[in-house]
Design a binder for these strands. Structure first.
Length: 422
DNA sequence: TCTGGGGTCCTAGGACCC
DNA sequence: TCTGGGGTCCTAGGACCC
């Protein structure tokens, strides 16, 4: 019998975080938007009931928002990150090992707790999260990660479960799988769901019963493992040590389109500066940088253009100015006049720990540059991001993304902490 | 009349996730 | 006017080598 695994997942996470700080948002329909205020990425139960879907572009649901008085917020990642820390702290007593899977989900390895009533155990855990953070959660229990995830989804959807579904129980598991759409299974996306449908496979139960060889032929080892997991045979474990990161990106859509190279250079310079800061924050160096930019793909009638240029970084580096120089070279090579660019980004690949980086013969004075970067980071951390920037970044940032309805940094900036009148 | 087989490394692109 | 950002993993195919 495999070790039981639990998945705890916060309900409507971004909305719940906003409600933790502003009680006026409780009981009314609320949505939180993606970066650039583009689409709805979190919805309260009330907003879901009004038919707002995940990923709905906000400009297409304007009338609904006004008609029902839906509260709309820009995303506030500082707040969500800080709240995550608090959620994890509330879980710690209930698990010896866990894997933080995303900003609102954690897998828990329940090895060593098997002699307990695990349903009571996870109920106590979610009570603790609620008490300490006000954030409601659901929990799925199962012999594999896929089944824990599926149980979590069932607990969310079906009120019968009262927020906790235990799929270790064979009868419960079979009942849930037969009613669970195959496209909602973790790891089955649109492309795979379409192929499965052509074979008459529409439920998680049918996928579980698919011949393993056929699964392999259709969706390679990925689908093969998935079928095994649905049968209760683990093919992945709870990863308790954080893996070495392989790549890193800073990409943004523009608030208004950009049609001249100087402005694009300004934006890309800022992204490269930020990418350098992220690299140093993780103690890493990169071996290559890719810069890309493109026009608006949602407007097929407008002239389309897309460029992507890879630049090798040798020696490997996390020096912001080297990254900026590489990125600017890439933009120069890829630029064409006459297009309205709406998005650009920097990607860094082949990362390794800075102290493991290979040395080269002609490095110059790296000590000075390292100290310069340290000074830059400390200025920006003390006086706010982008206090010290290269002039090439420009001062007119007309392209910067929209975030018109962002809540204050309630929990992380002293001026924003709410006051309570005595 | 006849033109190998097998291995590694790298990259691009697809699919999926939250 | 207006459609996010940041990741992972896998495979196919080309280049190269002996």
């Amino acid at each position: 019998m495999p070790t039981p695994i639990a998945l705890i997942d916060c309900n409507n996470y971004y909305v719940s975080c906003e409600r933790a700080s502003d009680s006026k948002l409780i009981g009314v329909p609320v949505i939180v938007l993606s970066n650039n205020d583009g689409c709805a990425v979190a919805r309260s139960a009330e907003a879901k009931a009004l038919g707002i879907k995940m990923g709905d572009p906000v400009h297409l649901i304007r009338d609904k928002i006004e008609r029902h008085g839906i509260r709309v917020l820009s995303s506030n990642y500082t707040l969500y990150g800080d709240m995550q820390r608090r959620v994890v702290a509330s879980i710690e007593d209930y698990a010896r090992d866990f894997e933080i899977y995303s900003i609102d989900e954690t897998f828990i390895d329940l090895a060593g707790f098997e002699d307990r009533d695990l349903v009571a155990h996870v109920r106590a855990m979610r009570d603790q999260v609620l008490r300490w953070t006000t954030i409601p959660t659901c929990v799925g229990l199962g012999p594999t990660k896929t089944l824990a995830k599926l149980g979590n989804a069932a607990a969310k959807k079906n009120p019968l479960f009262d927020s906790v579904a235990d799929l270790r129980d064979e009868a419960v598991r079979a009942w849930v799988l037969d009613r669970f759409a195959v496209g909602d299974v973790w790891g089955v996306g649109g492309a795979t769901a379409a192929k499965l449908a052509a074979l008459g496979i529409h439920t998680a139960g049918q996928l579980r019963d698919m011949p393993i060889k056929q699964a392999r032929a259709m969706g390679s080892v990925v689908l093969e493992r998935l079928v095994a997991e649905l049968r209760g045979v683990p093919s992945g474990v709870v990863e308790t040590i954080e893996p070495q990161r392989k790549g890193m990106a800073v990409t943004r859509s523009f608030g208004t389109p950009v049609s001249d190279i100087a402005t694009l250079m300004g934006a890309v310079t800022q992204y490269a500066m930020r990418a350098g800061e992220k690299l140093r924050g993780h103690g890493l160096v990169a071996a290559r940088l890719t810069v890309f930019f493109h026009t608006n793909r949602f407007k097929p009638d407008a002239p389309q253009y897309s460029a992507s240029r890879m630049v090798a970084l040798h020696p490997m580096t996390n020096d912001s100015f080297e990254l900026v120089a590489a990125a600017r070279r890439g933009v120069e090579h890829g630029w064409r006049d006459g297009y309205a660019i709406t998005k650009a980004g920097i990607m860094l690949d082949d990362l390794i720990a800075a102290e493991l980086r290979p040395r080269t013969l002609f490095e110059g004075d790296t000590v000075k540059r390292v100290r310069l970067m340290e000074a830059l980071d400390s200025v920006n951390s003390r006086f706010g991001r982008f206090s010290a920037v290269p002039a090439t970044q420009g001062f007119q940032r007309d392209w910067k993304m929209r975030a018109d309805m962002k809540s204050p940094a309630w929990t992380t900036r002293i001026e924003d902490v709410p006051r309570v009148r005595a």
